[in-house]
């Protein structure tokens, strides 16, 4: 039997996942809470930014994610997968080099500026990649994931190991971005229309003043 494109994609992902599982099987760090470090020197969150969020628990490594605006003072974070290939149709490969390769559209979190700012600024996604991400997200949020070489294979079988992968990934992202998928009612000072916006790169106001 010859392999079709979807099977080839699944095979590549599965090879990476088998190795990932093998190396993940041991608990490496104590399960204790981490106090968040200071981020006062970091620029305010903005669209296209790649940022690094520390885990709230010692068991997890930090998480890279890309920021998309989700309305006034709200941000949507697309986490990067730790794997090299997209695992499901709702994942998109944006780069070839680790550790920033595959975005998880099915595992995003929406948050306030305050929560998004609890992270380190790492870089900015190139314009052409950002266009691709927007096109992909538009289709995905309309319920029609784009198919193609940069997205993952279909998930149909109840015994597919990707169900376990997705459950594990939900835990990993919860550990870094919080379990609250859509946080509302965060009281932030509204700016007057004429109030100048801070320049890109300036440190955000400290939590005491906001």
């Amino acid at each position: 039997m010859t392999q079709n494109d979807e099977q080839v994609k699944l095979q590549m992902w599965m090879e990476d996942y088998a190795l990932y599982q093998l190396l993940q099987s041991e608990k490496l760090s104590k399960s204790e809470a981490c106090t968040p470090p200071g981020f006062s020197q970091e620029p305010s969150p903005a669209e296209r930014q790649i940022r690094l969020w520390p885990a709230k628990n010692m068991e997890w490594p930090p998480l890279y994610g890309v920021i998309l605006s989700a309305g006034y003072t709200r941000w949507r974070v697309f986490p990067f997968s730790e794997l090299a290939h997209p695992g499901v149709p709702q994942e998109l490969k944006v780069c070839e080099e680790p550790p920033l390769r595959v975005l998880q559209g099915w595992n995003t979190r929406e948050m306030s500026t305050r929560v998004a700012a609890q992270s380190w600024f790492v870089g900015v996604l190139p314009e052409e990649k950002w266009f691709e991400v927007n096109r992909w997200w538009l289709a995905l949020s309309a319920g029609s994931p784009l198919a193609g070489p940069n997205t993952g294979p279909e998930l149909r079988h109840p015994r597919d190991p990707r169900h376990d992968y997705m459950e594990q990934e939900v835990c990993r992202i919860d550990a870094c971005l919080g379990e609250e998928r859509a946080e509302y009612g965060v009281k932030e000072k509204l700016k007057k229309a004429a109030e100048p916006e801070s320049e890109y790169g300036e440190p955000p106001p400290s939590p005491e003043t906001s």
Partner: peptide, 8 residues
């Protein structure tokens, strides 16, 4: 693997 994604 071929059972997970049978040929369509």
């Amino acid at each position: 693997l071929e059972e997970l994604l049978p040929d369509t």
